[in-house]
Design a protein around this nucleic acid. Sequence first.
DNA 1: TGTTGACTCTCCTCTTAGGTCAGACTATAT
DNA 2: ATATAGTCTGACCTAAGAGGAGAGTCAACA
Lengths: 267, 267
Amino acid sequence: MLQIGEFSKICQVSVKTLHHYDRIGLLAPAEVDRLTGYRYYRAEQIDRMNYIQRLKRYGFSLEEIQYLITVSDHKELASALRRQKDRLKREQQERAVILNELQTHISVFERTGDIMTYQKSYTVEIKNSPKMNALAVRAQMGVDEFGKYYGTLFERVPKERVTPTGLNGAKYYDEEFNHESSDVELFIGIKEKDKADVVLESCECAMALHRGGYSTLSEAYGAVVSWIIENGYEMAGAPFELYIKTQFDSLAPDDWETEVYFPVRKK
Amino acid sequence: MLQIGEFSKICQVSVKTLHHYDRIGLLAPAEVDRLTGYRYYRAEQIDRMNYIQRLKRYGFSLEEIQYLITVSDHKELASALRRQKDRLKREQQERAVILNELQTHISVFERTGDIMTYQKSYTVEIKNSPKMNALAVRAQMGVDEFGKYYGTLFERVPKERVTPTGLNGAKYYDEEFNHESSDVELFIGIKEKDKADVVLESCECAMALHRGGYSTLSEAYGAVVSWIIENGYEMAGAPFELYIKTQFDSLAPDDWETEVYFPVRKK
DNA sequence: TGTTGACTCTCCTCTTAGGTCAGACTATAT
DNA sequence: ATATAGTCTGACCTAAGAGGAGAGTCAACA
């Protein structure tokens, strides 16, 4: 039997952590002295602790770990690990984009001496949005579900014998945009008007072109909105974005292009 | 002047966030109505907010951001950005190692059907540690400072005309190992006994070979310690590790090899 | 037997960056 | 005058422990 201090040294975790794990029921000591409350661990529990630490490194929360160590079904466990792997991979990619952004920012800053240059480069203009016929799906969704919904749209292309124009986008119906869940309509432009789910009429818009990954897209939105306010317009409908150049053109995020449209009218 | 709701939509942050930033003094509204307490923001503050969001994406804490937006010195700002970039890069590398580990774990699990196989493969043996003469530096340091301290050691090699044996390691004097700061002695083996800072005498040790990156090294330590307890030995000195195959052999982390030694005596 | 020092216990507060109510005002349109 | 939407403050909550206070416990030593 090991005292908590010995056990903590062996497993390279703090005594505090062991207290915590005991309290949340993740790893209870093999024995607790009734009188003194002293915790005693068995050497066999070292393996369990290492396993917990390993899952923690993989990025699972303690709650998930608590569940995982009780799972005996191989398939379930394997799929949980694979899901986590995919999550980590996606996060790695996102962070790679941010790192890239930071690198560019640094070099722009060193060249220009202005920390704001990098983000103030939006040119907002008044433009009539293109008229489009489109297949569309509207739902409450988060940004990380876009791919899934676009999948269902693109599946319909061959089935319904329509001809994509290559112009795709998303329209945001919620006033308040939320990354995890918003009322969004995704659409892909097609030639055939009679087969379209929706027809997006041309309208007067304030538009800005955003170059780069989507993590900074909100700055484009901000730029357009403040332009609208400053130039005596007002918003006249749900904003939308058109994906001009994307990952599907096998470009790096830095070269993606997105047009941000806000329908407006003169006040 | 913008109400808090409008400002929040433009900047794509929640009203709560704006409350929070106001309270901690990171971004105060341009005006607050004395009577109603309503907050009003100016369009110019959008840029500031975008800048804050950008720094947040770069991984700075709000406290750091609060400091950074007051800094007017270009050099200081640039060096803060560069430091952050290096930090992000290092974290990316660490996560890449973990991702790799997880991938291996998954494939081992699918092959063997045993989730523990991957971590129980340590063979502990009793062995006399090699006698070594070494240049050494002992200090309170965290694991991420190892590189720095090793640098100072290797600089001395040509200066003091010593001949490295290629056998390097680290000895942990604290009972309780701590990732951020421990009393550690780093050493590089050399041939010349008279020029050595320390002579590590051969002694009876329990030893295990760890294959892979350093993030799982603690499992090797755990394995050795529990072996010692189970096999009727007791610890007789500070443990140390020898780096047999490392990144300097231009190997991937999966192929690194580290020997973990615990001086022991029979009870 | 008494004492010292190391170890452990429980309980409390603190951390980040906000989220989630509740209850009370306030602004604007009808 | 009222309905609805927006806003205010304040209190409590999150995850995974860290830090400390004050008290009890264990083993060794004099």
